[in-house]
């Protein structure tokens, strides 16, 4: 554990609290992609199956349980409690274009041909693209509520902080996980456009609006 990873994980936690806060205070999940949230549940469930097989630390266990539980809670909020505010007609990204290639990549790149490792690898690849339906929706509508952009910024910061974490681990432990690093760099790259608008508009007090 180093400060980059720790603050990365805190940023991830913050993003989830911001999202739940947005949905419950506005009593609306407008602007949030259900598909992206469903992908995150898939990511957490497939990756954290090792909860039952290997123990790393109390921190690790508590965080895993929190991520699974909170992502399921968000799906409940979107599908049940605030269902009328969820508009599937603008959440049109085709999931098979994401899930299919991730299955293939996991079968090619993994650390062992057993269910746990294959699902772990699948979850890493899937997480790297899980934000795409959300970004696609943002692109389509061309605008976002400020609170939604804070959610995305916290999520992007979490990914960005994992990069110095890997650099630190490479020098301090000689540890490199090529699958995590490659998928992580791709994932962080997907946020670059968003971050540009976030820094130049939202943090200057303007509304998040994309040029027409």
């Amino acid at each position: 554990m180093n400060i980059f990873r720790f603050f990365g994980d805190l940023s991830h936690l913050a993003s989830i609290f911001i999202l739940i806060h947005k949905i419950t205070t506005t009593r609306s999940c407008r602007g949030i992609s259900f598909k992206t949230q469903a992908l995150y549940v898939t990511v957490f469930v497939t990756r954290y199956l090792d909860l039952f097989t290997s123990y790393v630390s109390l921190y690790n266990t508590v965080m895993k349980i929190f991520f699974i539980a909170s992502s399921c809670y968000i799906l409940y909020l979107m599908r049940v409690r605030y269902r009328p505010t969820n508009d599937p007609s603008i959440d049109t990204f085709r999931l098979e274009y994401l899930v299919g290639p991730c299955v293939v990549l996991a079968l090619i790149f993994n650390y062992g041909y057993n269910p746990t490792e294959l699902l772990w690898s699948f979850s890493i690849f899937l997480e790297s693209v899980a934000i795409l339906p959300q970004l696609f929706m943002l692109q389509r509508t061309g605008e976002a509520e400020t609170i939604t952009t804070h959610y995305l910024a916290a999520l992007g910061a979490y990914r960005a902080l994992y990069i110095p974490n890997w650099i630190y681990r490479y020098f301090s432990e000689g540890y490199v996980d090529p699958i995590s690093v490659t998928a992580g760099l791709v994932q962080t790259g997907l946020y670059l456009d968003f971050f540009y608008v976030y820094f130049t508009k939202v943090l200057q007090g303007q509304k998040f609006e994309l040029p027409a």
């Binding site: 991830h12 990756r47 290997s54 790393v56 690790n60 650390y111 996980d177 995590s180």
Partner: peptide
């Protein structure tokens, strides 16, 4: 080898 390694990152 990466076999039997633990995935300690979240």
């Amino acid at each position: 080898s990466h076999e039997h390694r633990e995935h300690d990152e979240l």
